[in-house]
């Protein structure tokens, strides 16, 4: 098969695409206030390419009139640029560590507030609710689960997931030190399983943008995994400050296992509790 694109052509194409991406991000920002300029470049580029492809546009520039003039296109755009890929008890050792190292300290609070930022379609926040239930804490807990992807938030609210995943989630749950039968937490039909309403009713799902929105309440635990990897260092720093301000004096922060520590090291806002599982504690001596 012939190589369709001689070197110079593809290099031109890349240069043009780079201009198109900047213009598109600027249009999205100026028209709707969503600022993706500080997302990691290689990854946001892939998302924008996928968006254009999904709507069968040849060029990324074709997205610009659409995002400017078609109101209804915003939600779909955000949903495509965001990465709503998640699972229940992803990295079981993290949930085990939360169970063993963090929850015992939270027992002393009469009322608990927890913020899960970047909840996507909800699998992770329901996993957290199960942990809290098994520690006897769920009854006095209010969880705020936030995201910028409204389509994912709606799915999260429904709490209905494909049954094909169930086996893997059950394995994860056991590896995370699950104390009951996983089947205690859902009902099934042929294709889907639905998380029990008792777990659901302690969670409020809400739209919140880590780039532009501020603190909305004081919480004892912030869970924000696999979100900061999409941000550049400056934006990471902003968000870590936001978490620092939102957390109670001795509050906990849990990040994704492969997240960069550079921002957190320089920020000096948190003390390490469990490095491998990326669990930190708010450091209040700095303020």
């Amino acid at each position: 098969m012939e190589i369709k694109c001689p070197t110079s052509n593809l290099q031109d194409k890349l240069r043009i695409e780079c201009i198109e991406i900047n213009l598109f991000l600027e249009a999205l920002y100026q028209r709707h206030g969503y600022d993706f300029h500080h997302y990691a470049k290689a990854s946001i580029k892939r998302r924008i390419q996928a968006l254009a492809k999904a709507y069968e546009y040849t060029n990324i520039a074709d997205l610009i009139p659409r995002i400017l003039h078609d109101e209804t296109f915003l939600t779909a755009t955000i949903a495509r640029l965001s990465v709503p890929v998640t699972e229940m008890f992803r990295d079981p050792s993290v949930f085990k560590a939360l169970r063993e190292l963090v929850l015992p300290h939270l027992c002393s609070y009469h009322r608990l507030q927890i913020w899960q930022a970047g909840c996507s379609t909800g699998e992770e926040v329901y996993s957290l609710a199960i942990l809290l239930e098994e520690a006897g804490l769920l009854k006095r807990t209010q969880i705020y689960a936030t995201d910028i992807n409204d389509i994912a938030l709606h799915q999260a609210e429904d709490g209905i997931f494909p049954i094909a995943q169930l086996k893997r989630y059950e394995r994860n749950y056991m590896a995370a030190g699950g104390k009951r039968k996983f089947s205690d937490y859902y009902i099934t039909n042929e294709k889907f399983f639905r998380i029990n309403q008792d777990l659901r009713k302690h969670i409020v799902f809400a739209h919140h943008n880590l780039v532009s929105d501020g603190v909305f309440c004081e919480v004892q635990l912030v869970l924000c995994r696999n979100v900061l990897i999409y941000f550049d260092t400056n934006l990471q720093r902003r968000v870590l400050n936001l978490f620092h301000t939102s957390l109670a004096r001795q509050g906990y922060l849990c990040l994704g296992t492969h997240e960069s520590l550079r921002a957190i090291e320089t920020a000096n806002l948190f003390k390490i509790v469990d490095f491998k599982n990326m669990i930190f504690r708010n450091n209040c001596e700095t303020i």
Partner: peptide
């Protein structure tokens, strides 16, 4: 990344 750093994603 263009500036020769690594990035990770769970896409």
């Amino acid at each position: 990344e263009i500036d020769k750093h690594f990035a990770l994603s769970v896409d």
